[in-house]
Design a binder for these strands. Structure first.
Length: 812
RNA sequence: GCGAGAGUGGCGGAACGGCAGACGCGCUGGACUUAGGAUCCAGUGCCGCAAGGCGUGGGGGUUCAAGUCCCCCCUCUCGCACCA
């Protein structure tokens, strides 16, 4: 064993030894419990990994290695979410083609993860942009289509007329195009594919209760789904005998207070009912509303605006005709795109009514009998007033009464509305999974590509420019577009849009179970064995979309009887964000990125890993500080010297003191418990504390258990140095195939404890007593203590509170 | 605006309602050294010579006992955006 710890020497050596032994290959092991640990599917960016990314990968690796040592058959694999906008943008800006860059970048990620000591079964590596993979993404899309969960509808997208292409939200900067920052973007209507995720809204909501996820994430999903109960009602439009305004409300009890209605500017009724006199103003307002950038629409300080359509609806409750307005605060995408305005009970309607001088009836009074406030709306529940047959009813009762009335009279019914909308899955992009659909020019219409003809391959394109029509660049490839109809054999065109990248990441966790299965997306037996994922780890930024889509696809597969579980990730944890030393997000443009490569070069991978674990709680944000890596390297050096002295002494089976044995077991207990809880920082602190003690001991005051248990505890966290130390201790098998040491609870138990004596809540004495000492004994000891006597003075204790092995509180 | 999370030494952070500051960084002193940005030893919340007192963003409260529980307020971070 070398005198000096030299990571540059041992890390590459063990790396190649492990590869030679194929150490991390997951082998089927019947009879052993399985554990599937998974990190969120990364996009292999050209910038490579930073030390921030490792804050996810290293902890997962520790869990995987730890579980393996405790007898689990562990699945830990890695793959690439390789389709997507960044690769395409890079191609457009720099001419670097994704078919070349993606494998190169992925290889770089793999290299970085490997030198960082992360144990993946690389034989299971997958890549969502490979035909072997996206063939099955297409297969899933067709399954959704078959089950009535995919449909076409018009949706509007951002459009830059200089790029002559569709823009993603993130490509719209200050209302202008990202490449033409002085060119305002507009909206363009396109026929696109949607996934009917709203049909799963209730299940997605209910099943949150049964999964072990961080509460904030669950809450975000609940808010995103945004279930609200209410009623859908309709009022006839005056002067248009067959037309009515259908609207959703959560407060049907306020119908007697409805003094006007508001439609979304995009509402189809607008064109039909607007009066001649108002037409010009309405059209002007509608087109302005449409042009508004997201930023403008998001502004909360913006004053409410709107325009009268000149048309009236008939409030069937008050029997009054009420004006119909349009306003951009009513959104076409929610409910029916129309509202009944109850300005007395809704603050937005109130503001609108004030501004345009509309009537503000008050139909809800506070339950305490006071009057509603005059200067604002009263949106809380209360008692119905000025409301005909509802008068005197509590809000909840009035609500039901209106629903009953509406149902009896055929003007509406109770309804549930969701904030969540269907998933727009079409992308007008080249670098994505082609949508396996053909449009027949004869009679057949929309025809799915038969499964045996999958995959629809992405054609190689050397130089792709936008089509200029809003279709993806694929529209420029005649060999791709022109095809024959699978049904009638006649001329047909292929769908040129590609699938949203979230489609690829909605099922990848299944693929790792049988990554090379060629006849199906996955092998049922392998999925039954490995899934669901036992521990899923990723950033909170994926709280909603990815996790919701993946959950929905899982439920669809369950319904299709392809799998036997309904939740893909029963346990989810979020790692914290590692901020750069300057407090900003690490990014190449800010020049504050710290790479694992640089840290490994300077301190070694083990030191980097330990610092990733030690720098703070795994799930909390923290700031990068390089001096910590130097500190964990020092820790490793101290372990090295300690073990080396023991090895050089001929690893004696010495005579450790009772205290040494106790400390070894206590540390082992702490580390075991804390790794299970993913509290790596305190686990490592316990090991440091233990080392501070044992490092002073002579080798003859140690034994194999004391030394080896330490090396074994270190193994998941610092795999290289622990392998080297393990071999130096005379083992011929890898430490990573060894078994996690077991602590003896009796030995880990404290024999002597410090019992604190408080007088009136202040600590006045500390007594060293045997664990389990009785209250009477402690009391006697305490009362005979000078310090306690001094603070008691001549007062008599009134009360004693005794917590065994902890404290005695004396109240006088 | 709504929702969520967080405020503890010079710094990162520990702490089943029960000894606040584990562990580490930094700093101070010392040892060993030609040398030290190496290693080892000691010290290190604040005030105080000491006894002791004060301390977990601020203010109240519950309790024998509060960083931890309750109420009000302040600051920061993240997420969402007029959801009828």
């Amino acid at each position: 064993m070398d005198e000096r710890y030299d990571p540059k020497k041992i890390e590459p050596y063990w790396q190649s030894e492990w590869e030679r032994a194929d150490l991390y290959r997951t082998r089927e092991a019947p009879g052993r419990p399985k554990f599937y640990v998974l990190e969120m599917f990364p996009y292999p960016s050209g910038n490579g990994l930073s030390v921030g990314h490792l804050h996810n990968y290293v902890p997962c690796d520790v869990i995987g290695r730890y579980k393996r040592m405790t007898g689990f058959n562990v699945l830990h694999a890695m793959g690439w979410d390789a389709f997507g906008l960044p690769a395409e943008n890079e191609a457009l800006l720099r001419g670097a083609h994704p078919t070349e860059t993606v494998p190169r970048y992925a290889a770089n990620f793999k290299r970085q993860l490997t030198i960082s000591g992360c144990a993946y079964d690389w034989s299971r590596e997958i890549n969502s942009s490979s035909p072997e993979y996206y063939r099955w993404t297409q297969w899933f899309f067709l399954m959704l289509l078959r089950r009535g969960l995919a449909y076409r509808a018009t949706g509007s997208q951002w459009w830059c007329d200089k790029c002559r292409t569709i823009l993603a939200n993130e490509q719209v900067v200050n209302g202008c195009c990202w490449r033409h920052t002085d060119n305002p973007v507009t909206k363009k209507d396109l026929e696109q594919w949607y996934i009917k995720i709203t049909g799963y809204a209730d299940r997605l909501l209910e099943d949150l209760d049964g999964i072990d996820w961080p509460e904030p994430i669950k809450l975000m999903q609940r808010n995103w789904i945004g279930r609200s109960e209410g009623a859908e009602l309709a009022f006839p439009i005056t002067g248009h005998p067959k037309k009515e305004v259908r609207f959703f409300t959560t407060r049907p009890d306020t119908v007697f207070g409805v003094s006007f209605m508001v439609l979304a500017p995009e509402h189809p009724l607008v064109a039909q009912i607007t009066s001649g006199a108002q037409r010009a103003a309405v059209e002007r307002y509608a087109s302005e509303a449409r042009r508004q950038s997201e930023i403008e629409r998001m502004s909360t300080v913006k004053e409410k605006t709107g325009v009268f359509t000149g048309a009236y609806a008939h409030n069937v409750f008050t029997k009054k005709d009420i004006p119909i307005w349009i306003a951009d605060y009513v959104l076409m995408g929610y409910g029916t795109g129309a509202i009944m305005a109850a300005p007395g009970e809704d603050q937005r309607d109130f503001e609108f009514a004030i501004k345009y001088g509309l009537e503000i009836p008050r139909v809800t009074a506070p339950a305490d009998g006071s009057r509603p406030p005059a200067d604002r709306a009263f949106p809380e529940h209360g008692i119905a007033i000025n409301s005909g047959f509802l008068d005197g009813k509590k809000t909840a009762d009035a609500l039901r009464a209106v629903c009953d009335f509406a149902e009896r009279n055929g003007i509406g019914k109770p309804t549930v509305s969701y904030r969540m909308r269907d998933w727009l899955i079409s992308r007008q992009r080249y670098w994505g999974c082609p949508i396996p659909i053909v449009y027949c020019k004869n009679e057949c219409g929309i025809v799915p590509v038969p499964e045996d003809q999958l995959p629809v391959r992405l054609p190689p394109m050397k130089d792709y420019q936008p089509s200029g029509t809003g279709r993806s660049p694929l529209a420029n490839v005649p060999e791709f577009v022109n095809t024959t109809c699978p049904k009638c054999g006649g001329p047909a065109e292929r769908e040129t849009d590609t699938l949203d990248g979230f489609a690829c990441s909605s099922w990848y966790f299944l693929r790792f179970a049988s990554p090379h299965e060629a006849r199906a997306p996955f092998d049922r037996a392998a999925v039954d064995y490995w899934l669901p994922v036992d521990l899923y780890v990723g950033g909170a930024e994926h709280a909603v979309m990815h996790l919701l889509y993946a959950r929905m696809w899982t439920k669809v597969m369950f319904d299709a009887e392809l799998i036997s579980f309904q939740e893909p990730f029963p346990v989810l944890r979020n790692q914290g964000v590692v901020w750069a030393a300057d407090g900003q997000r690490m990014s190449k443009s800010k020049g504050n990125v710290v790479t694992p490569d640089a840290m490994i070069e300077k301190y070694g991978a083990d030191a980097l890993r330990l610092w990733e674990l030690f720098m703070g709680p795994f799930d909390e944000d923290t700031k990068w500080n390089e001096s910590g890596v130097a500190a964990t390297e020092r820790f490793i050096v101290r372990v090295w010297s300690w073990v080396r002295r023991y090895v050089e002494a001929g690893y004696p089976q010495g005579a450790p003191s009772e205290q040494t044995i106790h400390r070894a077991h206590k540390t082992l207990r702490a580390v075991t418990v804390q790794i299970e809880q993913m509290r790596f920082n305190t686990a490592l602190a316990a090991m440091m504390e233990h080392l501070n003690y044992v490092a002073r001991l002579e080798p003859t005051a140690l034994d194999r258990f004391v030394v080896e248990s330490f090396v074994l505890m270190l193994a998941p966290m610092a795999p290289y140095v622990s392998e080297e130390l393990w071999r130096a201790l005379g083992h011929s098998d890898s430490v990573h195939l060894a078994t996690w040491p077991v602590f003896d609870p009796a030995l880990a138990h404290e024999d002597t404890v410090t019992v604190v004596v408080q007088v009136n809540g202040k600590v006045r004495e500390r007594l060293q007593v045997a664990a389990g000492t009785s209250e009477d004994e402690v009391k006697a000891l305490a009362l005979s203590s000078d310090a306690v006597k001094k603070h008691l003075g001549d007062k008599t204790p009134r009360k004693f509170i005794f917590i065994k092995d902890k404290m005695l509180s004396v109240v006088v």
